[in-house]
């Protein structure tokens, strides 16, 4: 099995089938990161497709300063965060529509196939809370806790220092704790 860097190099050398292998070897990886950020299967498929279109178009800009997988992750995270931003703006525009029809949608159209049924409520609450975090905090949390990346890898993907990532993570956890306090408190009360 060739590495992502070798495949990129082969693709840049004119080997189109190397791009096919690159997509097939990385599609699950990219799809899962994107899915954790956009939180919806259909949107994640579209965003994953956009990520590989960008890889195809920008392959020449890969200078090999970072690992190819880091470069792929960076494109995936940025594309997913941009998608969320556009979606949020679209929701703002349709706010008037919501008011007119007295209809309030959930802030996240949550549909994650990787969530176990018994965890669905907790996961829904967590993803809803994640959506309220600033983009970089959200990305850092997803990469560290859900993708199992080290702080150093998260720093490389987000283009930050390790200290900055540490501080991002700590702020993300504080905010999540604050947002989810009532939810978890209610759950505990119900269980006791």
């Amino acid at each position: 099995m060739e590495t992502t860097a070798q495949l990129l190099k082969a693709f840049l050398g004119g080997n189109e089938s190397a791009f096919k292998v690159l997509v097939e070897e990385n599609e699950d990886l990219i799809y899962n990161v994107v899915l954790s950020i956009v939180k919806n299967e259909a949107d994640a498929a579209d965003v994953t497709q956009d990520v590989f279109v960008k890889v195809f178009q920008k392959a020449t800009s890969f200078r090999g300063e970072s690992q190819a997988s880091t470069w792929l992750y960076r494109i995936a995270v940025n594309t997913a965060l941009d998608f969320n931003k556009r979606k949020r703006n679209h929701h703002l525009l349709s706010f008037a529509n919501d008011l007119l029809f007295r209809y309030r949608r959930s802030s996240v159209s949550f549909n994650h196939p990787g969530v176990l049924l018994e965890n669905k409520d907790n996961a829904h609450a967590l993803f809803d809370a994640l959506d309220k975090l600033p983009g970089k905090q959200q990305a850092a949390f997803v990469l560290f806790y859900m993708e199992g990346k080290s702080q150093r890898e998260v720093a490389e993907i987000l283009g930050l220092s390790v200290n900055a990532v540490e501080s991002l993570m700590s702020r993300a956890k504080q905010k999540l704790q604050k947002i989810l306090f009532n939810y978890y408190n209610r759950q505990k009360n119900e269980n006791d």
């Binding site: 699950d28 899962n32 899915l35 954790s36 994650h112 990787g114 969530v115 176990l116 967590l126 859900m146």
Partner: peptide, 8 residues
């Protein structure tokens, strides 16, 4: 909860 999410 975050770590219980399975890869798909």
């Amino acid at each position: 909860t975050a770590q219980s999410v399975k890869k798909v």
